[in-house]
Design a protein around this nucleic acid. Structure first.
Lengths: 178, 178
DNA sequence: ATTTGGTATGCAACCAGGTGCATATAAGCC
DNA sequence: GGCTTATATGCACCTGGTTGCATACCAAAT
């Protein structure tokens, strides 16, 4: 559901092709959602089927034809309905926590290795997010236009999550080693 | 994969029925993984099929018969193999962040409502986890037996996550209101 | 007597997401 | 001529998880 609605919001802001939407995911929406191009195309087809978007075939020179999708009135209505619905808390199935939980069977030494490997990955991710913050969001949040504030908040959540995870991991490794 | 392995670890610690495993999920493993009884039974059947667990039918008086599942040698081997594999970082598809991102189309007032509703839910969850901590883990972590430390660490991650989320939400609401 | 709640197991259908593969055009490079 | 990269779209299959339903036994409460 969220993927459909995210796509609707993207084509509302600017009529787009599946390809462009996928690029959007790789860039900014990647802070909080991942989607492959197959998923995007599949969802666009379903949305067009239900009349929530409509598309025009656009011939191009020097590259393949494309389908530009735009939101419809029904699409706006569906989005507004969804937006008003209360949201379930996301489910929390975390493979690494399974390894922590089963650490005695797996071996505590192996667990410590897993933790520090994961820590390296999370450090990378944090560094990446911090670089984006420095480059694209250096000003005070209160001075940003609304749309930018909203994207910035999703970035902030990524930063907060990574920092909290790293703090937890450090304490955990210390406890297991000590 | 993680679900299979979690089940393997549970039946390794103590041969169990699907019903008991489901109860285990509702209780302790619920800090970091959710699974319905259907999922558990399906996975147990698959595990038995592949020879990673074996089961005995046990007749009971006063209640239905049950199947007690235990891990096999092949099961231990499969677990050890999986445990050594590096873990992917979990995917981060968060419906609430979609609402933040699409807040202009959805309406900022509606977004603020969504945020405070979510905040109430996260506060409840935090209170629940803190109650568990007070009741079951009052002693210093260093004094706990290993198995208890490991469960405690998964609880700590839940606590850290909820606290980080709440902090983020407060700042976000302030920014959007101010 | 009937309902509720706990124990115990399972099927069928569906939905969301991921993997692998396929196709087509064209620019630029070696 | 063949390689890679970028644009652009899509199918088929598989896995993992959810929903709804079904069955059966028994105890305790109403």
């Amino acid at each position: 559901m969220s993927l459909r609605m995210l796509i609707l919001a993207i084509v509302e802001a600017k009529p787009s092709t599946g390809y462009a939407i996928t690029k959007e995911f790789d860039a900014v929406a990647g802070f909080f959602w991942r989607a492959s191009h197959q998923q995007v195309y599949r969802e666009l087809a379903a949305l067009a089927d239900e009349g929530l978007v409509r598309f025009k075939d656009v011939a191009q020179e020097g590259r393949p034809d494309k389908k530009v999708h735009a939101i419809t009135v029904a699409g706006r209505r569906a989005f507004a309905e969804w937006y008003a619905q209360p949201q379930d808390i996301p489910r929390l199935n975390d493979p690494l926590m399974v390894k922590v939980f089963t650490g005695e069977l797996g071996g505590v030494d192996n667990l410590i290795e897993q933790l520090s490997a994961a820590r390296a990955q999370h450090l990378d991710k944090l560094a990446m997010l911090e670089a984006i913050q420095r480059e694209h969001y250096p000003e005070a949040p209160a001075d940003m236009p609304r749309w930018k504030q909203l994207v910035y908040l999703t970035l902030c959540w990524g930063l907060a999550r990574e920092r909290a995870w790293l703090q937890w991991a450090e304490q955990s490794e210390a406890l297991l080693r000590g």
